[in-house]
Design a protein around this nucleic acid. Structure first.
Lengths: 217, 217, 217, 217
DNA sequence: CATGAATGAGAGTTCATTCAT
DNA sequence: AATGAATGAACTCTCATTCAT
C-alpha cells in the first residue's frame, strides 16, 4: 500500500540536514547556498527543511549554533587538562587550530559572520564568541595574577589568535599557489597546522611572559 | 544651473557608480548588493552599470581594484618617510589601520574575500595582497639584516597584523554592545584606533626585537 | 465544484503549458515568445514553466518533440492502410497536408527551424525529420522496385512535397489578400487543402509514373 | 586638431550598414541580430544606424528590399535572353538557384519571412514576391498558349520551385551531416546546385510538357 | 513526517532607442 | 554626419517559501 515509507525520526533528519548545511554554507556562503541544493544533498524534500527550521535564517542559526558549541566544548574539554597558564594558552590555540583545520568550514563561516557584524545570526554568534573570549581572558588573567604574564588587552590578543589562525587556514590554497608562482615569496606554504601553532604560541609567549619569570612559571 | 550636476560624463559616472558600489558591497556583501539598489543610490540607470562594467562581477572587480590600489599607495607613500625598520613597521601598521578605519568597507570586503579564497575576483585580490605582503616582508627582512629583528615567519606576522586590525575594526559596534551588556568584560570598547595600533605595535616589537639590541638600533 | 479545474497535477500542468507554448511559438516565433506571456496564457505561474522544462530551450524542445511525434505517427498510421505505392504516396501527402492544416503551427515552426539548420533544437528536429524522410523514400523505392515509378532523387521530391505544402499553408492569408488586391493574379486563393493535395499528387505522379505502366500498377 | 575625422558620405555608410545587416540577419534571424553587433561589425556608431534607418524594422525592410530587388533583377535580366518557354523556365529556376546559392542569406531570410506571413515587413516582401510570381506565371502562360505546356496552377508550381530550392540550399550542411552519420540514407549530399536544378527542371518539364509536343516546342 | 506542485518577488542582463554634443 | 552616454522596458531565470495531499 504505502508507496515509499521513509521512516526516519525527526532528530536523524534534522542532524542530516545540519550536517549538509554546514558544508554547503561554508562552501558557498550564506547567500549562494540554495535550499534546493541543500535538499538534494541531504536526500530530503525541500519542504522538510522548512518544516524543521522554519526558514533559511533559522537553519543558518542552527548551523552556527552547532559549530560554535562544538568548538567551545572542544576548547573547554582540553582546558581541563592543564592548570599552568602557559599550557592553557597553548592548549587553547592548538585546540582551536586543530578543530578549525579538521572542520575547515569554521574559519570561513566565522570570518564571514564577523566581517558582517553577525548580520545574519547576531545573538548566537555573539554569545558563543563571548563565552570563548571569557575563557581566553581568564587564562590571561590567571597568568597575570600568578605574575608570569604581563598585562595586556585580552581582546586584542584574542583577535590576534583567531585572526591569524583563521586567515592562515582559509588562505592555505592561496598561499600554496602564490609560492608556486613565485618561489621567492615565503608564504609559509609548506607549514602544517602544528608548526603554525608553534610559531604563534612562541610569539605570544614572547609578548606575554615576564622577562625573568618565564622559565619557572 | 543644471539640475543634475554631472551628466554625459563618463569618468564622473563611473566614479559615481564605484563610490556607491563600495559602500553597498561593504554593507550588504556581494550577494545581497543588488544592481537595482546600486542604480537607485547612484541616481543612474541600472543599464549604465552594465554599460561601464559589463556585469556585476566586473563592477566588483573594479571596486576591489580601487580600494586595494588605494590602501597600497597609502602604505607605500608613508613608507618612504622612514628608514629604520621599527619605524617602518609602525608606519605600516598605523597607515593600514587609519585607512581601514576611515574606509570601513576595507576590512569587511577584505575579510569576506579572503575567507572565500577570493572566490569572486581572484587575481585582483591576489596580486594586490601579494604586493602589500612583499613590502611587509621586506621591512622584516631589513630588520633582520641589520640585526635588530629576530627571524620570524613573515606570512604569519602579516596575517597577525591584518587579522587583528580588520577584526578589531569590523567588530567595533559588536564590542561596544558587548561591553554595555556586561561591563565585566573588557572588550577594548573604549579604545580608538591609535591605541589599538599602539598595542599591536608594542606587542609586535616585543616579539621581534632582539633582546639587547632593541634600544639602540 | 473546485474553482480551478486541474491543480497540483503535474501531467495536466505540463500539458497545459505545452499546448499554449505550441500556439505561442508558432504565432511569435521562438525569440518573440515570452515566458511571461506563456504563463499568463496558461493561467499558471511563470516559475512553473521552468520547474517543468528547465529553461526556454527545454520547453521549445518539448514543443518540437511533441508536434514532430504527432505528425510522424499520423503519417505512419495512415500508411498502414495502403500497399500500392501510388496510394501510399498520396496518403503521405494528404495526411501531412491535413495535419498541417489543422495544426497550422506545424508549417511555420518547421520552416523556421529548417531555415535555421535547426539552430535551436538540432537533434529532435533532425531525427524526426529523418524518420519521416526514410518512410517517404521507402515508398518511392517500393514503387521503383515494382517498376511503376521511375528513379528519382528522393530528397528533392521530399522537399518538394514539404516545401510546397508548408508554403501554401503558411501563405494562405497572404495569397487571399493578394488575390483581393489584384484579381488578375491567380494565387490559388480559393483552393482548399484537398484540392492543393490533388494538384500536388497529380503532378508528382506525372513525374514519377513510368509511361506505359502507370495504369495497371 | 580634429580627433578622428570619418568622412564617409551618407550613401557609403548606408551601403556599409546594409551589407553587414544582410549577413547578420541571415545568420541570426531578425530577433537575435542586435543593433550593437551590427554597429560593431560595420565599424560605425550604433546611433548612425538609427539615423539612417529610423529603427530596426526600417533597417530590416531596407535589407529585404535590397535582396528582393537583387534577385528580381537577376531573374529579369536572364529572362531577356530567352524566348522559348522551356528555356525561360529553366532560366528562371537556374538563376534563382545560383543567386540563392551565392547569397545564402536569401533562402533563410525568405523562408523565415514567408513562414511568418511577412510579419516584419509585409509590403516589401509582398510586392517583390508578387512581381517574381507574375514573371513566373507569364512563362507558364506563354507555354500554355503555345500549346507546349499543359495547364497548371501556377501558384503551386511557383512554391514548388521556391520551396524545393530554398530548402535544399538551407539544409545543405544538415544533409551532409545526415549522410555521414548513416550512409544508407540518400540525402543528395554530394549534389551541387546545378545538378539540383537539372533534377528540378527535368521533373517540372515532365509535369508540364504536353506528351507529344515536348520535343518540338 | 514527508512530498511534489505552486507561487511571487526579485535578480542580473540585454536591447532598441534617444539625447546632447 | 557622427558619437558616446543614457534610458526604460523587457526578458530569462532563480529562490525562499507555502500549499495540498
Amino acid at each position: 500500500m504505502s508507496k515509499k515509507i521513509q521512516k526516519r525520526n525527526a532528530e536523524a533528519s534534522k542532524a542530516l540536514i545540519i550536517t549538509h548545511a554546514i558544508t554547503l554554507f561554508s562552501e558557498k556562503g550564506y547567500a549562494f547556498a540554495s535550499m534546493d541544493a541543500l535538499a538534494k544533498r541531504s536526500g530530503l524534500n525541500k519542504a522538510m527543511v522548512f518544516y524543521y527550521f522554519k526558514n533559511k535564517k533559522g537553519l543558518y542559526a542552527a548551523v552556527m549554533h552547532k559549530i560554535l558549541i562544538q568548538i567551545q566544548s572542544a576548547v573547554l574539554e582540553e582546558n581541563k587538562q592543564h592548570s599552568a597558564p602557559r599550557e592553557e594558552l597553548e592548549g587553547f590555540v592548538r585546540t582551536y587550530a586543530r578543530f578549525a583545520c579538521k572542520h575547515p568550514y569554521l574559519p570561513s563561516l566565522l570570518l564571514r559572520e564577523l566581517s558582517d557584524n553577525g548580520a545574519i545570526v547576531p545573538e548566537v554568534l555573539f554569545t558563543s564568541m563571548k563565552q570563548l573570549f571569557v575563557l581566553f581572558s581568564s587564562i590571561l588573567k590567571k597568568g597575570e595574577d600568578r605574575g608570569c604574564f604581563v598585562h595586556t588587552a585580552p581582546m586584542i590578543l584574542y583577535f590576534m589568535v583567531l585572526g591569524t589562525l583563521n586567515l592562515m587556514i582559509t588562505t592555505k590554497t592561496l598561499r600554496i599557489q602564490a609560492h608556486q608562482e613565485d618561489s621567492e615569496i615565503d608564504t609559509f606554504a609548506s607549514g602544517n597546522i602544528d608548526e603554525i601553532v608553534d610559531y604563534i604560541v612562541e610569539e605570544m609567549l614572547r609578548m606575554l611572559v615576564v622577562p625573568n619569570k618565564g622559565d619557572n612559571q
